[in-house]
């Protein structure tokens, strides 16, 4: 394995973007990084800058306005990158599938690699999804 790949897998930096969720998954993502679950011990760092991120964590069913921002964030993130869709509404629209202003899933906007189920997804599931994402990142990096 290349040194860069090894470093990337050892400490994945995540970019979190909310494109229309109810906040439940967002606070669970933060809870996954804080002491009880502590994903930071696995090297996961939440970063605000897409140019430094490896994993994009997206919540919410996406609407036309947030889709623009999401697409721009996806394009700014350097390759290799993986996208984790957290929550039922990020996967299919969930309870919001009847709403007028949603696309019903993040995969209508950007390609998604890992789906984390749950409404709201539990921190354990989110950490599990991140680990699955790292496996995909390794494949994409040619490792």
């Amino acid at each position: 394995m290349r040194l860069v790949t090894r470093a990337r897998l050892k400490s994945p930096w995540i970019l979190h973007f909310d494109c229309g969720s109810c906040n439940g998954c967002d606070i669970e993502i933060l809870a996954a990084l804080t002491p009880k679950f502590d994903a930071e011990r696995l090297g996961v760092v939440n970063i605000g800058d897409p140019k430094q991120a490896d994993v994009i964590v997206v919540t919410g069913p996406a609407n036309p306005r947030s889709a623009r921002a999401l697409r721009s964030l996806y394009e700014q993130t350097p390759d290799p990158k993986v996208v984790v869709a957290v929550g039922a509404c990020a996967a299919t629209g969930g309870v919001f599938r009847n709403c007028e202003n949603v696309f019903g899933g993040v995969d209508k906007v950007i390609p998604v690699d890992v789906y984390v189920p749950g409404c709201a997804a539990r921190p354990e599931q989110i950490i599990d999804g991140l680990l699955l994402a790292l496996r995909k990142l390794k494949e994409k990096d040619g490792g």
Partner: peptide, 8 residues
């Protein structure tokens, strides 16, 4: 605003 509007 308008990034989270769903039409609930």
């Amino acid at each position: 605003i308008g990034y989270i509007h769903r039409g609930i």
